[in-house]
Design a protein around this nucleic acid. Structure first.
Lengths: 130, 130
DNA sequence: CTTGCTCCTGTAGTCACTACAGGTTTTATA
DNA sequence: TATAAAACCTGTAGTGACTACAGGAGCAAG
């Protein structure tokens, strides 16, 4: 079965604009075209789009996703390399969480110090302090 | 006391390029200039730069920081508005943490399923599954 | 046969910087 | 004092991963 880009978008969860972007970036292969020049997608490309979507949801960069796709097509045992990319991304995610938690703690304290009707805002004072 | 941009950068923790960027964006006022056209910073502007730096570290957007700076110069009681901007950012930060934790959980499971020497990588299989 | 939807290409914008290129001025050293 | 090195200047382009048009062509339903 073949589908036009709108259906491919629906089936993969990737927006039409983003599908075209992925094509430009060489993440998905160039699809077939109708006589009038419209893109036509097969089931395999739609699977790939869904894969990319899931990877993005997991925080993988486009560069990592390219590497994962390449590994998925390689003959040699790739599970180790895949795991390494995954572990690397997991660390990045954990670092981001740590950063954000630090932000959350500081922000919470600042916001709590802020009460309406106050004369000099303690939050601003804190942020402006030497 | 007045300082050239390099010293202002040191004292505020904001890079030279970023100081010039903040000036272009109207976040910091246009500084004075020497006869030769070099920027000269006073203590007040350096405080502002430090304020912006701290706000960025807390995850505030540039738009929010502009609003906070405006509130800090306004006559009327601004503590309530400041608190609202802070609370809003706190929510954004918490949403980001929630997203990342979801990522972390899913990633961890995928990476754990990946062992070297495996024939078909379970992580890739999972990500490609229907 | 016309209305409205889907699709096309190409370009520009988003956010918050960062990185030059190619020039001038100031400061430190010989 | 001469010169080399550092600091500064403007202006522009690049980053990541999209998103948002503008302006046009094709296609499907009533």
């Amino acid at each position: 079965m073949n589908w036009p880009i709108g259906k491919a978008s629906e089936r993969s969860g990737v927006s039409i604009e983003t599908i075209r972007y992925y094509e430009r970036e060489g993440i998905t292969p160039k699809p077939g075209r109708t006589a009038a020049g419209r893109r036509v997608y097969d089931a395999d490309t739609i699977l790939r789009l869904r894969f990319v979507k899931r990877c993005r949801t997991l925080g993988f960069s486009i560069a990592d996703i390219k590497a994962l796709l390449k590994l998925s097509r390689s003959q040699d045992e790739s599970c180790e390399d895949v795991g390494a990319i995954g572990a690397n991304n997991l660390e990045l995610v954990r670092n981001k969480i740590a950063d954000l938690k630090r932000m959350e703690g500081a922000l919470q304290a600042l916001v709590a110090s802020c009460h309406k009707g106050q004369k000099d805002c303690p939050m601003l004072q804190e942020l402006f302090a030497d």
